[in-house]
Write a protein that binds this DNA or RNA. Structure first.
Lengths: 266, 266
DNA sequence: TCTTTTGTGATTAACTGAGTGATAGTAGCG
DNA sequence: CGCTACTATCACTCAGTTAATCACAAAAGA
């Protein structure tokens, strides 16, 4: 009995959302019993009974739990949808306040530098997807995108691609035919092709623990390449701007090797 | 110089969003300078230089910062909108995973109890507003709402009220004429009135430090009363269901005293 | 009245994060 | 080259927080 898989998951997620361990355990406990006393909760959640009260109070203050002030006190969790909504509201408020606070100070000192060879690293699926979207939105001439994994072809990405202006060349590659089919179906406006990316093998650019993620070249001058660590599944990317950028050299090589149906190799 | 008002605010908010102090300081620092080295950041943010690297790495892993692996390393913050979007994505993912995890276990034991006199307490503006919305959505016959403060008449509440079915009596009271006017303008379908809520004075129900928040009676059987602590501005509510509920007795009293244009007192 | 349960507060232990110093690797410069 | 200054990483201390346990008073039930 006790602590099924998902219960532990839920507790962990709640902690990521900012709750303490006891608070998370108590909330999950309440989500399982509709209503309960400190004693009952303590038994279910393995939280010391005397600490349940504190945890519940915090949860109550956050609007996640209701308290019935009888003796013994009864507790119950707010319905999950409501709780999620409350957390979301809280989050949105904070982001907005952050936005306001930073907007008013971002005006700062500093003389400009003009570095030439900038290559930046970013991590995280969400961040990379957002950056991909930004770059696509800002394209004026040409977009070359190679998608390395099915899971990267998200709804958001598809929407972004379909919103691309007609007079921009949109070329989307895939690592397999099935992926290509998916791309073709989802993004009718794109020219698609299949690329094995064999050029990556035999190079020291990528080792066995790394799978190709995505590859984006915008206007021949901005490029983003990502990989997915096979163990952690985390996505990492490097990103370069400027025509003279070293990364762009790599992209030229891609062209030269016929990876991409280049139309005008310089 | 150093640490303008808003910078401190931003740092605090970022911490609420889950960042550590150093991480928050570094992010805000980067938001101010576009690009910087550890040394520069250390000067701006007052974070020990040797700790900047750790903080930045964490930020990078979360997709909030980009790193240029040169020597010296260069850091820069992801554009604010992008960062906010990334944080939002992260949040949504977590809530969804939480949803999934709890949905599959919420099926739990427990025999039912049938308590009669349940009065529950909930706290927090967002939570109470959500609960208010839920109750209004579920109304079938009558909604009586008294809004005690202008700040509570939020966009969300207005939308909820305007979505109420036509054949449900919707009666909205306000504490002042100006508030009433606002209500009338925002919710054309409602019958409005002004109530001074003087009945509260002279009772021991509310002390000087507490202002009336909202008062909601749905179908004559579910009631929610909230107050706003004048010092902390925190909203607290009590909430009762069931016709025989003691709170409903209070609502009858409201009716009897003509607070609400009752149509059928008993 | 007595016993059990319930709620609160105090106390300790374990941990995490803030702050500091030591050290190895890297640039620049004579 | 070889020096110095700087950069990046690591190891460590100290403080504040959180987890965990205990002691005790108030309340409930017998």
């Amino acid at each position: 009995m006790d602590t099924p898989e998902n219960v532990e998951d839920a507790i962990e997620i709640l902690q990521q959302l900012g709750l303490k361990e006891y608070e998370a355990r108590c909330f999950v406990g309440l989500a399982r019993v509709n209503t309960g006393t400190a004693k009952k909760l303590s038994e279910i959640t393995e939280v010391p009974r005397t600490r349940v009260y504190d945890a519940i109070r915090v949860l109550e203050a956050q609007g996640l739990v209701e308290i019935q002030h009888s003796s013994p006190q009864q507790f119950r969790a707010v319905p999950l949808d409501e709780a999620a909504e409350t957390l979301r509201d809280q989050y949105e408020e904070r982001v907005e306040r952050l936005h306001n606070a930073l907007d008013t100070v971002e005006i700062v000192d500093e003389e400009e530098e003009s570095p030439v060879q900038q290559i930046w690293a970013i991590s995280g699926r969400d961040a990379i997807e957002n950056r991909t979207g930004e770059l696509i939105d800002k394209a004026t001439d040409e977009i070359v995108l190679v998608v390395g994994d099915e899971s990267l072809l998200t709804e958001g990405l598809v929407d972004t691609l379909n919103a691309v202006d007609d007079d921009i060349d949109l070329i989307v590659g895939a690592l397999s035919e099935s992926l290509q089919d998916q791309v073709e179906a989802a993004v009718p406006g794109a020219t698609t092709f299949v690329s094995g990316l064999e050029w990556l093998r035999g190079e020291e650019l990528v080792d066995d623990e790394t799978a190709i993620g995505r590859l984006l070249l915008v206007n021949r001058s901005t490029i983003l390449v990502s990989s997915i660590l096979s163990d952690s599944k985390e996505e990492q990317a490097i990103f370069g701007e400027g025509f003279g950028n070293g990364l762009v050299v790599i992209s030229r090589r891609l062209m030269a090797q016929g990876l991409v149906p280049a139309r005008d190799p310089q």
